[in-house]
């Protein structure tokens, strides 16, 4: 029948309108939620960081004083340097652990591949605060590690730098995130055909060449994802330093939490949050470009 095949101009217009509007029908809910509860708060954060808002100052209006205060106060510089140092050390430690571990799971584990993978995924379901607490219990003055060290006779007194120090923060941060570091690297390595390695060996490549010219460049996207997933949350963490850190391991996250919840200097807190957001953006972009340097041609 001709009536079926030929659509009137009006029907065609309707069909096109439906096609055009369909994505927005789907996106209406999610994007609405994000605009109302994610974008709007971030815009407010931006505005607040340029306004006076403190319990101690009655002035109102726009200002750069929050940022000026952060950049001129040497205490912030020390905290920022410590944060960068601890997060970077923890990240390098995790990469050093995760790279061989991912290689083992992807190529050597065989029937252990699945159990190890499952254990790495499962540990993430445990409560992060509980995991931090478990380490605090172990590392304490009377904790199991100190008892063991004294029992073996390595020390006669409890080792005090095990807890409430930079060491404990770096260790606990690494142990909280190393599973997240491993999984993307595993996924990247799993995509490599092992025949590539055999071919390289046949062509006379030693283990270092295979590692440097094949494994590293092909796993680079996984390393980038790992750094993106892990470095940013570590950089902004405050629960770990608050629970297992001491005065020497105060991080930017603690500073923000204290400004917002204890001191009540919301202007400075907003400005510092914004600066941390900018820093994480720089880290992410840097990680992205670093990962591209090593691609196979």
């Amino acid at each position: 029948m001709a009536a079926e095949a030929v659509l009137s101009a009006r029907q065609r217009w309707q069909a096109r309108a439906v096609r055009r509007l369909r994505p927005f029908g789907f996106l209406f809910g999610p994007v609405g939620v994000l605009l109302a509860l994610f974008v709007a708060p971030l815009v407010l954060l931006l505005i607040m960081s340029f306004r006076y808002d403190s319990l101690y100052i009655t002035k109102t209006g726009f200002t750069l004083a929050n940022f000026a205060g952060i950049f001129t106060n040497p205490a912030y510089r020390t905290v920022a340097r410590d944060t960068l140092m601890m997060a970077t050390t923890a990240m390098l430690l995790q990469l050093a652990i995760a790279f061989p571990l991912a290689y083992f799971i992807a190529f050597k584990a065989r029937r252990w591949e699945l159990p190890v993978l499952l254990l790495l995924v499962l540990v993430d379901e445990l409560n992060p605060i509980v995991r931090i607490y478990a380490w605090r219990m172990l590392l304490g003055r009377d904790g199991l590690i100190n008892s063991a060290l004294q029992w073996v006779g390595l020390t006669s007194r409890p080792v005090l730098w095990l807890l409430f120090s930079k060491f404990s923060v770096i260790l606990v941060l690494s142990m909280s995130w190393v599973n997240y570091t491993t999984l993307p690297m595993y996924a990247a390595m799993k995509a490599i055909n092992p025949i590539v390695f055999e071919t390289a060996t046949d062509l006379g490549a030693g283990w270092f060449t295979r590692w440097r010219r094949i494994l590293l460049p092909l796993a680079a996207p996984g390393i980038f994802v790992a750094i993106l997933l892990v470095y940013v949350p570590m950089f902004t963490d405050f629960a770990t330093p608050a629970l297992v850190g001491g005065p020497s391991s105060y991080m930017l996250g603690n500073q923000v939490a204290d400004l917002m919840l204890e001191i009540g200097d919301w202007g400075t807190g907003a400005a510092l949050s914004l600066l941390m957001l900018a820093a994480t953006a720089v880290i992410s972009v840097a990680a992205y470009f670093l990962s591209r340097l090593n691609q196979l041609d």
Binding site: F38, M48, V232, F235, T236, A270, S273, M276, L277, S284
Partner: peptide, 23 residues
């Protein structure tokens, strides 16, 4: 739209939490 939806996964939760408190 894709970038907007992915953003909360990349932006640190601390920043989202602070902005939520202010909001």
């Amino acid at each position: 739209a894709a970038m907007l939806v992915a953003a909360p996964l990349v932006i640190p939760w601390l920043v989202i939490a602070v902005s939520g408190q202010l909001y």
